[in-house]
């Protein structure tokens, strides 16, 4: 009997349960619990279609939605020393790295790319919370420095999407040293007179918040994002009292003067285009879904001024300026 219940029956069940739908087809909203169809959720940039809850989005998906036509060129990040401390907790750090790399298909917790948004050339960096909690180690530091150097070289603004639990403990003091290192990167941008826009996403905490993520010219957050230095649990343990509702959430920080704006993910692209173009003194952008920049079209636009037509007619007709030229700031 035991043998049957413990062994045979589960095996039979497992054979039959394979007929169930693949588990990645439907996802449950972390906030309201609604079952969401995967494709619909992806199209909505991982924002719950029911309650508007913002779920995690990978840097690649974000860039795909951000850049014109979903086209961007990745910028190579100098590889740091692997496991400089020979760190070992319950697992070895290289093993943790390998499994994170396998799960995400990424090298580390930050992706850097160049491309255009609303025909405005930018450099963008996005932190990957799914890669070891987005934690900031040498690689992330190198990525931010590479992004800033590329932005300065190309004279482009840098837009950085932050998401991290904090510093990567497995790199010990060297992860802490990414605070001054990334700050130097921000200074390079400021000295070059280039805009540095930070978008804080859920969650951005610890040493990341206390360095590059709080030094933007403009600080925008996604709704509901947890943004803090010390996490709510640590604070509750220290002061031994319950924290108010919404404490350390984006809206709370906005109320306390720590952010410029809280902007839903769906509106982020248009808002970034608008802010960046104003800071650069460029005319208003052409609205709508732009195709990827294409060399022949760009040169054409450079020479023939009013000839360029906006590709998304319904929105463009309303918002497009009289002269939609100047696709490239040189």
């Amino acid at each position: 009997m035991n043998w049957i219940t413990n062994y045979v029956r589960p095996r039979i069940n497992s054979i039959f349960s394979r007929r169930e739908m693949p588990d990645n087809l439907w996802l449950k909203c972390d906030s309201c619990g609604t079952m969401l169809f995967h494709r619909e959720l992806t199209e909505n940039l991982h924002v719950c279609t029911h309650c508007g809850h913002h779920m995690a989005i990978t840097p690649r998906e974000r860039f795909h939605a951000l850049f014109d036509g979903g086209t961007f060129a990745e910028i190579a990040v100098p590889e740091p020393l692997a496991d400089p401390l020979a760190f070992r907790d319950q697992k070895r750090y290289p093993d943790r790295m390998r499994s994170a790399q396998r799960d995400t298909g990424e090298k580390d917790a930050m992706l850097v790319a160049t491309g255009e948004i609303g025909r405005t050339p930018i450099v963008a960096a996005a932190q990957d919370f799914s890669f070891m909690g987005g934690s900031m180690g040498m690689y992330v530091g190198n990525a931010i420095i590479a992004a800033a150097e590329e932005a300065v070289k190309l004279r482009r603004p840098l837009i950085l999407f932050a998401a991290a639990g904090g510093a990567r403990m497995q790199e010990g003091i060297l992860s802490l040293m990414q605070m001054p290192r990334s700050t130097v990167a921000v200074q390079m941008l400021k000295e070059a007179g280039l805009p540095y826009i930070v978008v804080l996403t859920n969650p951005t905490t610890g040493g990341v918040t206390a360095s590059y993520a709080m030094l933007g010219d403009v600080q925008i957050a996604e709704p509901g994002a947890l943004i803090c230095f010390a996490g709510p649990r640590v604070i509750e343990q220290t002061i031994r009292e319950k924290l108010p509702e919404g404490f350390q959430r984006a809206e709370y920080l906005l109320d306390h003067g720590m952010l410029d704006r809280v902007t839903p993910r769906g509106d982020m692209r248009e808002e970034l285009i608008s802010i960046v173009r104003m800071l650069l003194g460029l005319p208003p952008a052409i609205r709508g879904d732009l195709p990827p920049p294409d060399a022949s079209e760009l040169t054409q636009a450079d020479t023939a001024a009013p000839a360029e037509t906006a590709p998304a007619p319904e929105k463009a007709a309303k918002d497009a300026p009289a002269d939609p030229k100047k696709p490239k700031a040189k």
Binding site: T209, A210, A213, M214, C228, F229, A230, V234, I235, T238, I239, L243, F247, Q248, H256, G257, M258
Partner: peptide
Amino acid sequence: AYPGKGAEERGQS
């Protein structure tokens, strides 16, 4: 740095 409510509200990071 002090992990307190007021410290966070006033922008510790």
